[in-house]
Amino acid sequence: MVVGGAIIWALVVGLLLYAGHARREPITARKASWLILGGGVAFPVIVLFCLLAYAVWLMPQIRPFMPALMDNKPQIEATGEQFWWRLRYLDDGGNTAFETANELRLPVGERTTFRLKAADVIHSFWIPSLGGKMDMIPGRDNVLSLEPTKTGVYRAPCAEFCGTSHALMAFSVIVMERPDFDAWRQSRIEAAAMPQPAHPGRDLFFRHGCAACHTIAGTPAIGRIGPDLTRIGERQTIAAGTLANTKDNIARFIREPDAIKPGVEMPAFGMLPDGDIEAIAAWLGGLK
């Protein structure tokens, strides 16, 4: 794309210089009409035809709704919620293998197919570095597939206004080598069977009712309303791409979530003793 743009730029500048410096000699009417016909009609018609054909040819790969391409079943189900992302990794049978939130991990060099949903209002799923956006519409399943070609960490904002904290709704995408991805995926599946060791923060988490909304694999917490917090300590950010993942920020979010994300569903827990909040934040931040 850059090379193509550079060539066109050089051509335009070259023509400009030529027009400025060439001797002004009128060309014949015949030559002029061929120039108009060639440069004004034939050239754009052919170029546009090629570009159109290329774009139409490309389309089914980006939007795999054709039965022929439906063989690659959705591997991840992403649901937009106000104002976070529910991400379910699916097994071969299409059932949920495990759930996570606000951080996506993908294998590099492979096409991953997503099923996109929305729980409340229209959101839009967009990882700018990996491809185009697609709306997440309540009551409808949209299918999108993406193929990352480079490992790294990418940011993905919500691309459809969805409420007061729309601008604070993002997720991070970590593109990994296949073996690393498999190891991570396997460890996440096994996490459900690995009991989390005792910790003062763990007891407080349950005593103050956090488990009513949040799930943490390996504990009795199976709340479905809020984001899954399994291994929240390994994520890049908290509060759906809003704050750096530090224990202080986790504590701050527990204390005043609505000050950080206006319109957030989670109630503020500022009435809890500071020590309790710190302990819960320390425990959550250490879940890796």
Partner: peptide, 23 residues
């Protein structure tokens, strides 16, 4: 007529690439 000829060709392009109906 020239414009319409080209336009009809452009409208036809998807016919070559559509594999099946959207499911």
């Amino acid at each position: 007529s020239g414009l319409s000829f080209v336009s009809v060709l452009y409208v036809t392009v998807p016919l070559f690439f559509i594999g099946a109906c959207q499911s």
